[in-house]
Structure formats: structure tokens, C-alpha cells
Amino acid sequence: MTSQAQPGLWPPSGPEIVFLLLGVVALGSALLVVTTRRLVHAALWLVVCFGALAGCYLVLTAEFVAWVQVLIYVGAIVVLLLFGIMLTRAPIGRSADLDSGNRWAAAVVGVATAGVLVSVVVSGFHTAYTPLEPGQGAAGTLGSSVFRTWVLPFEVLSVLLLSALIGAIALSRTDIGGRE
């Protein structure tokens, strides 16, 4: 909530500076993910990006989310992606054709998206301010929220995860069901 004594947008406070630096790292590494010519580098830059984002979460006092981010994204998903790169026998070195011919249209659309979104959020939230209070996103508070209020979606989600697992197995194994 906006408080009465709301500091101006500039100069940024300490946490904000940290956040912005982490944000720049995340954005830069994300840009490298989508532009690098090496597949494996892309995956590694993704690690950097996710890590920086985890830092951002920490600054925003969402500690638990930050750790989950590190554990699942950096720990699991990127590994999965690397396995994918490996299994599809992608070239490890530079490859010239990682971008499709659609690149310039994509760039235009991307820039336009950025323009629209940024202008919208800036115009919408340039006055929004909240002081950070540590402990808001601690494991305890979050855990009690998940297992009280959100327990049903949580359970549903676990079923979803299970079925996704089974689906992945079914899809990746050639000797199960499928084509005649």
C-alpha cells in the first residue's frame, strides 16, 4: 500500500539498487539466452538468469520462493534442458542457424510487446510503493498458507505433476502403445 511518506522514484533506495542490479543481470543473461549461437551456452545463461531472479525474489522478501526457484529451476529444469540438448544430438559448438527467418518479425513484435507492456505498467504503477518487511515470504508463513488455504489446489497439482510424469514417460518410450 502506498504510505503517506512515500519516497520518490529517484534516487532509488538500497534494496532497490540491489534489485535493479540483479534485474539487469537477469535481463542481460536472458537476452543472451535468446541470442547466443551456442545451445549449451544458452542453457548456462539461463542458469544465470534464474539465479539473478532468485536474488530478486530475495530482495522482495520472498525467501521461500527464491529457494524453490533455485532448487527447481536451476537444479532440475536446466538439467532437464541440458539432457534434452544432449539427447537431440545438438551441436555443442557454434551453430549458425539457431535463429529462424522469422527473426526480424520476432524482434519487431518483441520490441512492440516491451513497449506496450512497459508503457502500460509504468503509467499504471509509477506511484505504487510499499516498504519491504522481511519475513513475509518465509517458509513458515508460506507453508501454513499453502496447507490451510491452498491445500486443495496443492493436491490437484500433485496429481497433475504425476500425470505429467507418466505422460512424459509414455511419450518418450517407443515401446508403449501408440502407432500401429
Binding site: 532509488p12 535468446v34 545438438a90 529462424s100 520476432a106 518483441g110 505498467v121
Partner: peptide
């Protein structure tokens, strides 16, 4: 914390993602 900072970062990150989805050929990169 001004909300506008994380929101703008998020918007830019999203746009980069959009560009990546539209521009990359490799499905894993997508």
C-alpha cells in the same frame, strides 16, 4: 520498494521471452 521496478523488469523479461519463442528455431531453445 517501488513496484514499478520489478514490474518493468518482468515486462522486459517477458518481451525477451516472446522474442525467443518467435525467433529461435531449436525447439529446446523455444
Amino acid at each position: 520498494m517501488h513496484i514499478v521496478y520489478p514490474v518493468v523488469v518482468s515486462a522486459l523479461l517477458f518481451s525477451i521471452g516472446v522474442y525467443g519463442v518467435l525467433a529461435r528455431r531449436n525447439a529446446i531453445l523455444v
